[in-house]
Simulated scan of single mutants.
Amino acid sequence: MIDLYKIMGIKRSAPRKDIHKAYRKKAKTAHPDGGGSTEAFNQLVVAYSVLSDEGRRARYDETGEIEPQQPDNLDGGAIEIIAEKLGLVIHAEQDLASLDVGALIERAIQDDIAARKASVAHQQRAGERLSKLRGARKRKGEGEGDLVARVLDWHELAIQGQIKKNEGTIRHLERALEILKDYSFADESAVAPSEEVVEALNDILVSLDELAAILNSSPSRAEAMPKEAEPTAFG
């Protein structure tokens, strides 16, 4: 079991204000910019988020659980995404014959993945700016509690939460693409008539060719018609 108190470097009886102080002190060295590592900093963030919340801290002290166990239902999330995309197609009131439904849904999911990845990159850059801001912050006077530090802590937790949420959604979107590879939405009933039409047109063309050949091999209309009688002296 992970010892969150050990990660924070505090006693189990430490009051909340000591948790804030310990986090700010540890964050300077645990962050990659301060010589630490991403893993160490993430552990510190988790420890702080649990121990600074009275309810979560009490549950951790009692059960040792950092969070209630919530399995990542990858297929369930993927199916929800597919259901949403299919719903848009179903209610679009467009002729399905004019749509490549499979390609349409796949493209929409790929666009979502790209947007989520862009959001993760944005949040990571925001985290880097926050870290620099934390390092540049200097308090002019002494007082009870550091409200600005708490605000920065809140932003840090929010950024980590957004990154985690987007990364989870990306996994579900990618799983949705894998599932859709096994399916086709082509309207097979619309294929047969088109083939019949093509066959009928070919028959018509053959008939026209045959008719043209017959006409070309027959005497011309002028030759086939009887000649008019030449006028006589009696008119």
Score class of each variant (00 low, 15 high):
Val120Ile: 12
Glu84Ser: 14
Phe234Ser: 11
Gly87Trp: 08
Ala22Arg: 07
Ala108Thr: 04
Ser52Val: 09
Gly64Phe: 04
Gly64Met: 02
Ile19Tyr: 06
Glu62Asn: 01
Glu142Leu: 12
Lys28Met: 06
Asp3Arg: 11
Gln124Pro: 00
Ser49Leu: 03
Ile10Asp: 00
Ala83His: 03
Ala103Asp: 13
Asp209Asn: 11
Leu215Trp: 05
Pro15Lys: 05
His122Phe: 15
Val45Phe: 00
Pro71Cys: 02
Ile19Gly: 05
Leu208Gln: 09
Val151Thr: 13
Gly141Ala: 03
Ile7Thr: 14
Asp3Ser: 15
Ala108Trp: 00
Arg56Tyr: 01
Met225Gln: 07
Gly161Phe: 02
Gln124Phe: 00
Gly87Gln: 08
Asp3Cys: 10
Ala115His: 12
Leu4Asn: 05
Ala149Glu: 00
Glu67Val: 07
Lys140Asn: 06
Ala78Gln: 04
Lys227Ser: 14
Ile81Glu: 08
Lys28Leu: 07
Ala115Asp: 13
Ile214Glu: 13
Met8Tyr: 03
Asn166His: 13
Gly235Gln: 13
Pro71Ile: 07
Glu62Asp: 03
Ile19Trp: 06
Ala149Asp: 00
Leu173Arg: 04
Arg221Pro: 02
Asp112Lys: 12
Ile10Val: 15
Glu142Val: 14
Glu188Cys: 01
Lys28Asp: 01
Thr38His: 12
Glu106Phe: 01
Gly87His: 09
Lys138Arg: 08
Asn216Met: 08
Glu67Trp: 11
Asp53Tyr: 03
Leu211Phe: 14
Leu133Gln: 08
Leu99Asp: 07
Ala149Arg: 00
Leu211Glu: 13
Asp18Lys: 13
Lys21Ala: 10
Leu4Ala: 04
Lys138Gly: 00
Gly9Phe: 14
Ala27Arg: 10
Leu173Ala: 10
Ala121Thr: 09
His20Asp: 13
Thr232Leu: 14
Asp187Ile: 07
Lys165Leu: 14
Pro231Asn: 02
Ser217Ala: 11
Asp33Glu: 06
Arg125Lys: 13
Ile113Gly: 01
Ala222Arg: 07
Tyr23Phe: 15
Arg12Pro: 01
Ser13Ala: 07
Ile2Leu: 09
Arg57Ala: 11
Ser207Asn: 08
Gln123Ala: 12
Ile7Val: 15
Gly161Asp: 03
Arg16Phe: 02
Glu167Gly: 10
Arg137Cys: 05
Ser13Val: 05
Phe185Val: 06
Asn216Asp: 14
Ala222Val: 03
Ala158Lys: 10
Ala121Phe: 02
Asp209Tyr: 06
Met225Asn: 02
Lys117Ala: 06
Lys17Ser: 10
Ser218His: 05
Arg171His: 03
Asp95Ser: 08
Glu230Lys: 15
Leu152Asp: 08
Tyr5Gly: 01
Glu228Tyr: 06
Gly87Glu: 08
Glu106Gln: 10
Lys25Pro: 00
Asn216Ser: 11
Asn42Arg: 15
Ile214Thr: 10
Val89Gly: 08
Leu173Cys: 15
Leu180Ser: 07
Gly145Ser: 05
Ala192Ser: 08
Ala126Met: 13
Arg221Glu: 11
Glu65Met: 11
Phe234Gln: 12
Ala126Lys: 15
His20Arg: 09
Lys181Ala: 12
Lys117Met: 06
Val198Glu: 10
